[in-house]
Design a protein around this nucleic acid. Structure first.
Lengths: 196, 196
DNA sequence: TCCTTCACATACCGTTGGTATGTGAAGGTA
DNA sequence: TACCTTCACATACCAACGGTATGTGAAGGA
């Protein structure tokens, strides 16, 4: 029972490692999870881990990439479902808020991510995964004259920061109406960008 | 040469530990700094450290408190220098942006803080030190009818998140005009809160 | 003068991330 | 089929870390 070629097995091991690491990082946090815990859960040894990744931080990086891409897909899908550029934009923002409320995303993407990788590398990943979409949406809105012509990057940072923090706060809040509570002032601030 | 009573010496040792720890945490980051490095720089041993603090995280917590209070004082001072509530508010926001650009503040308060202490404890400290001022300012603005009556907490979170991220971005940017570049859209969004 | 207190120093431990080396099955070649 | 190379892991080990248990000597009251 060969159960697939060597390359398939390799990929399977890699994915198992990422999956178990993601689960543990999300529930316990990067610092509280040992490599032994990860490899134990994955049913392999540290040798396998170091064969696939350069170390603990590199494994975390792979996990973070997966999480960010998952969020980005959700957001992009929500945006693509609309036709009007402005509605694409706002729908994407709302989708991000709900997507980032997931505890996995919380801990890995917003809490440990910047601390483990540093803001520079974190931003590079965030840029590639989701902030780029935000910046593109804003650029489109500027091109179409929906919002005033202005530098995109500072605006992207402000909105990204506001929504990250909002998502973090949402996750900690037990009030089911919290999403609406944040969305009200956020949409108000978004509306402020529209040319009148 | 007794050089002060025992209590004075104790306080001195404690302050030295906090000072050196702050310097090292700020430059290298929490994870990359060992206790041996800290006590070495402070000219004491681990025994002294564990006599004053419950551990590495507790020492970091003390450092973070100091940093946050320093920022809060700067912000409060900028606000108190104005008379008009709205100007107090905006001046405080601008002061926060510049204060949080300091690298010490960056790394300790915005990057490592949440990851080391967790968001709950971090928020509690942030609440006590600076977010409370922001919430109070917003409450005052609502009372005086400058901005619309609405729940304060979500609004506080959005603004706090936006400004934290903006400060982080400012620190990484070499453009000297970056502050103005962020302030423009931020003040635009703040203006959106005012009742017309 | 003595004794207690306490602010630290010293010595030690378990665990961790990381590395160096071993091993056995997969898969090509003759 | 026999052989050999490759490589995906396992095993064994290490230095360094955070943390703890215990020692010590000066300060300060009685």
């Amino acid at each position: 029972m060969t159960n697939g070629g060597r390359a398939q097995q390799k990929e399977q091991t890699r994915r198992t490692l990422i999956r178990e690491a993601r689960r543990l990082f999300a529930t316990l946090g990067y610092g509280a999870v040992g490599l032994s815990e990860i490899v134990g859960a994955a049913g392999v040894t540290k040798g396998a881990l170091y064969h696939h990744f350069d170390g603990k931080a590199a494994l975390f990086r792979a996990v973070l990439e997966e999480v960010q891409q998952q969020v980005a897909r959700t957001v992009a899908a929500a945006g693509d479902a609309r036709d009007d550029p402005w509605e694409q934009f706002t729908a994407g923002c709302r989708a991000f808020l709900t997507a980032a409320t997931d505890p996995d995303v919380q801990r890995i993407m917003l809490v440990d991510g910047p601390a483990v990788l540093g803001w520079n590398e974190w931003r590079a990943l965030d840029e590639a995964a989701s902030a780029r979409h935000l910046a593109e949406a804003l650029t489109t809105l500027i091109e179409e004259g929906v919002i005033a012509r202005q530098p995109v990057e500072p605006l992207t940072r402000l909105l990204s920061g506001a929504m990250n923090e909002a998502a973090l706060w949402l996750a900690g809040s037990e009030d089911p109406g919290a999403l609406a509570g944040v969305w009200a002032p956020l949409s108000q601030m978004l509306e402020a960008l529209r040319v009148r």
